[in-house]
Amino acid sequence: MKLLIVAGPPSAGKTAVVRQILRSVAGLWKIAYLKIDVVRAFEDEELRAEFSIPTKKIYSGDLCPDHMGIMILADTLVWAEQEKADILIIESAGLCLRCTPYTTQSLGIVVLSSVSGTNAPLKMAPMIALADIAVVTKTDLVSQAEKEVFREKIRTVSPTIDIVETNAIQGTGMRYLMQAVVSTPEITDAKMIRLRGIPPLGVCTVCAGKQEIGWQNHCGVVRKLDSTEAIFRGD
């Protein structure tokens, strides 16, 4: 089984890219799909209805969705194996632009929208730096100059990243993403899968839903106005 991890900010077109992958491999490979989101997600139901594939979703609620994704990934691999999937696609919630939910033994895909502004790749640097391939969507909407500069900014963050430009609704340019999917090696040892980086998950009482303000009311990693760095405060 191959593992694809799709990250990217909200509305970048992650699901449109997943749809194009599903269309390209229809009848050739069986795909299992997991969507991680915070409060609501519909992608699993839509894709199940459209492609008749096994899908799941999980809501992270008060937890960081990438934290949630990391917790459940091992179980999800077992589920996808039981479904006899050839490829497992995990789609992140895409809320935290610094998060890098990619693992070893997977293809890390970051989906970026060219309408998000030419500096956007710099703001999302960690999400791009650890990905294998950047899929730039909605390129039909922006000027040639912005397209070129957007690409340069991605290259600034990650000089060697593979870049695919596409209008994911029409599926233009997807052939290169499909080549990358096809050449992604299978998982060899699921127990050895590791995160590629350490996402700044900020696991603390704010993440867990405590609404009071001020460090005095929180545990975990906290910060005082006059301190120069974060400190850990136990319960």
Binding site: V115, G117, D140, E148, R151, V164
Partner: peptide, 21 residues
């Protein structure tokens, strides 16, 4: 030609093409 917009010999301009910045 296909993958690098600065090498691409084709410019497409549609009614949607805008400068967003």
């Amino acid at each position: 030609f296909v993958r690098d917009p600065s090498k691409k010999p084709i410019a497409m301009i549609t009614q949607n093409t805008k400068c967003l910045s």
